[in-house]
Design a protein around this nucleic acid. Structure first.
Lengths: 227, 227
DNA sequence: TATGCTGTTTATCGAACGATAAAGGAACTT
DNA sequence: AAGTTCCTTTATCGTTCGATAAACAGCATA
């Protein structure tokens, strides 16, 4: 037993800096997700079993540590394959949507993701708006067009606000599972995949019909005006 | 001009205690909705144009003031008539739901309601779970049964988790409008009433169909098991 | 075993926090 | 006009915060 002097066990003083930094970051993710940005560096250090000034050896300020926390939780979580999978017409649209939301839910429906996201929003950071603008451009427009194609509607031209809003609604219902569980502390369905499948099914039964009604009534409106 | 010495104008020092307390409460609602519970009493006092110790003349502690803030925003906001209106079968179910959610949205979709609700949840208070348990018992079960009746399904017996979850989904989509606007700082549809009508329409097209599928497949499952 | 490097702790600073005590001052009574 | 009431301010306490400086201590090298 020459290597690893006593690495993991007991008093782990004088760690390799890379390992210590990793511990700090992971501890900070859990800590700030629980207490928000106003959680104190002393309390965080106590949780990590180190002293508070040591944090400042690894991060120049609390804000720098928080930036690192956000990078850890939100960067590189989006899978580019999801977009091509959503477009794969060899698979029924309902299956595509169910699989996408099941995979996406695995990424976002966890304690850290949900709570840090809400803390950021309440703090007034523009992070949330930027993230959701990306989500809309990456997924919502795509989903709207696949639904149009499925129902023989024109896929060119801009997506109606109403179509986007109903897709927002599906997204909201799914994200709200995380809010209920991790922010309100309420129970959520045991079988998440089955729950998501149900939500997608209900969405696909209702959304195109409601949008269809809308477009019909718009066409009637236009017909009444022009003729 | 004997009365109202110079009541409203200029330096409003030495107010009637009732009026001063009202100003403090209203200011505190706006202030803590913006900054959360960690907003300082000094900053609040500065906003009110008074000194910080004066707050302690009217409230024994910061927590007592926060309790008053929550009472101000959340107590007596539920209109008992909503429940009988939801049950009024002289009105088409879609209209009943649209009107209910339009009225309910007027109550909850504002800066203070949405943000203080989220701050409370993140703080770990049980307020959110209690409120939503009430909402479910007061409205969700009722809505589920009205939908069942509309589709010729049995209205007795407990509501399925799946039915409740899809109603949660509609609620989530509506509440998320407030989250987008007041927490993320994003735009929302201009015409809220039209937007809500669209959401209810899509919900009513999809939810019963998805639940119907579910029950059918359960019946088939049971039929396969029993013989 | 002595020395140097550096990861870590102890000690501490100035600012901001919730809260309290005492002094000030406006409006009413006599 | 003097006195009383009580709304409001000034002054301040003890604590906790983020952050810094200096001392300490583990581990490798010589």
């Amino acid at each position: 037993m020459s290597r690893a002097p006593q690495a993991k066990i007991a008093d782990k003083r004088r760690l390799d800096p890379r390992e210590r930094e990793l511990e700090i970051v992971q501890g900070a993710v859990a800590f700030f997700a629980e207490f928000g940005f106003d959680g104190s560096t002393r309390e965080l250090a106590a949780r990590l079993g180190i002293t508070q000034p040591l944090l400042y050896r690894y991060f120049p300020s609390k804000e720098a540590l928080l930036d690192r926390v956000y990078e850890e939780v939100y960067v590189n979580r989006w899978n580019k394959d999801w977009e091509s999978q959503l477009r794969d017409r060899a698979v029924p649209l309902e299956d595509r949507l169910v699989r996408f939301y099941q995979a996406y839910a695995k990424v976002i429906l966890n304690y850290e993701w949900v709570r840090l996201f809400m803390f950021a929003g309440l703090k007034g950071l523009d992070f949330n708006a930027r993230y959701l603008a990306f989500l809309r451009s990456a997924a919502f427009d795509l989903i709207a067009r696949e639904i149009r194609r499925e129902h023989g509607m024109p896929v060119d031209g801009p997506i109606l606000d109403e179509e986007a809003e109903l897709i927002w609604g599906l997204h909201a219902a799914i994200f709200y599972l995380g809010v209920r569980q991790f922010i309100y502390g309420m129970p959520v369905p045991d079988d998440r995949d089955a729950d998501l499948a149900l939500r997608v099914r209900a969405f696909l039964r209702g959304m195109p019909a409601a949008v269809g009604d809308l477009i019909q009534s718009e066409e009637m409106e236009e017909a009444r005006r022009t003729g």
